[in-house]
């Protein structure tokens, strides 16, 4: 090589030097590019960690002042600076639970309809229409809830519930109350409408992953559609279906605007679902800009931290369960 290179004409030497320089430049550029995209990837991690830590930091005053009692106190007194999270926590859980009780069976029905029942030409448009529901901004749900749904609840549904279910033992107290229209039941129903498209689209997707072979074998043995879904499709997709439900639960727990409009912003703990209540997200949305003392603001941020932790675990569980199915798919 060395002997040859002396014989090479200057132009070629220049070309080689040029190429070497270009290679070095490319290598540097490659390194820089790799560095930039890696930093962006890490940024995603930092965003989530930063959100958690900043709220823990912002809520430290509330946590240190009220201690564990913050979680169990129903007091919310801005004048005397006493804050407890029990009412918002209770409201968040109850509204999300109502939403799930309505949304899960309905979403299952929609997914079943779109994968097994509907004729082929109908599946695309109806599926797209349901997914359109997911795209409507939550503030529209809130407005619609306040101006259209709340009057109906107050005028017809609440009196009916009072008269017919309110007298029953055990569940009666849940459905007795003034016909205000706003309240936890209304909020739960609006939430249900909001999360139905999320849950049903996950369910539909996972139902489609069931191998046709399995379903056809069951049909060939004489199973009805219901039996195929119940005995073949559901067992095959069980973890992912639960994952989809958890995904919807995560949404329902953290939803802010739709709930804020129809929940009534009342800091009281009542058994009745027809009474106004409060949720974590609605409390923050309603009161944050009005918080006039540090401890007030800190209590609201602490509420945000609690909400974050709860939704984090719910969503993480959802992801893990959804992942199990895709891994099973990949292993095949």
């Amino acid at each position: 090589m060395a002997a040859n290179s002396s014989a090479i004409t200057p132009t070629i030497t220049a070309a080689i030097v040029d190429a070497d320089r270009r290679n070095a430049r490319d290598a540097r550029a490659d390194g820089a590019f790799r560095w930039i995209v890696t930093a962006a990837g890490i940024f995603v991690l930092l965003a989530l960690a930063g959100a958690a830590l900043s709220m823990l930091w912002g809520g430290r005053e509330a946590f240190s002042t009220f201690g564990l009692g913050f979680l169990f106190s129903t007091e919310w007194d801005a004048v005397n600076h006493h804050f407890g999270a029990l009412v918002p926590i209770y409201g968040t859980l109850v509204t999300a639970l109502i939403a799930m009780i309505i949304a899960v069976p309905v979403s299952f029905g929609i997914a079943l309809f779109l994968t097994e029942v509907a004729p082929n030409w109908m599946r695309g448009p109806v599926g797209a229409a349901i997914e359109l529901l997911a795209g409507i901004p939550s503030i529209i749900y809130g407005m619609w809830g306040l101006f259209v749904f709340v009057p109906l609840m107050g005028e017809y549904v609440s009196p009916w519930l009072n008269d017919h279910i309110g007298a029953l033992p055990l569940i009666g107290p849940l459905f007795t109350g003034p016909p205000l229209g706003i309240g936890m039941l209304t909020a739960g129903i609006v939430l249900a409408i909001m999360v139905i498209p999320f849950i049903s689209s996950v369910m539909r997707e996972v139902f489609l992953t069931v191998p046709t072979r399995l379903k056809e074998s069951a049909y060939a043995l004489g199973s009805t559609t219901t039996e195929v879904v119940w005995d073949i499709v559901l067992p095959y997709t069980r973890s992912a279906v639960i994952g989809g439900i958890f995904l919807g639960l995560g949404r329902a727990l953290g939803e802010t605007m739709a709930v804020t409009f129809v929940l009534g912003n009342a800091h009281q703990l009542t058994a009745s679902l027809l009474m106004p209540g409060n949720s974590i997200a609605a409390t923050i949305a309603n009161e944050f800009t009005e918080a006039d003392s540090d401890i007030y603001r800190s209590s609201l941020i602490a509420l945000g931290f609690l909400l974050f932790i709860v939704t984090f675990f719910v969503l993480a569980a959802a992801k893990l369960m959804l992942r199990r199915l895709s891994r099973q798919e990949g292993a095949k």
């Binding site: 930063g50 959100a51 912002g58 953290g254 802010t256 923050i284 939704t311 969503l315 992801k319």
Partner: peptide, 13 residues
């Protein structure tokens, strides 16, 4: 998780 996290929490952040 960030994709489904409550947006109000991001506001607080």
């Amino acid at each position: 998780i960030l994709l489904s996290a409550p947006s109000i929490v991001l506001g607080l952040f």
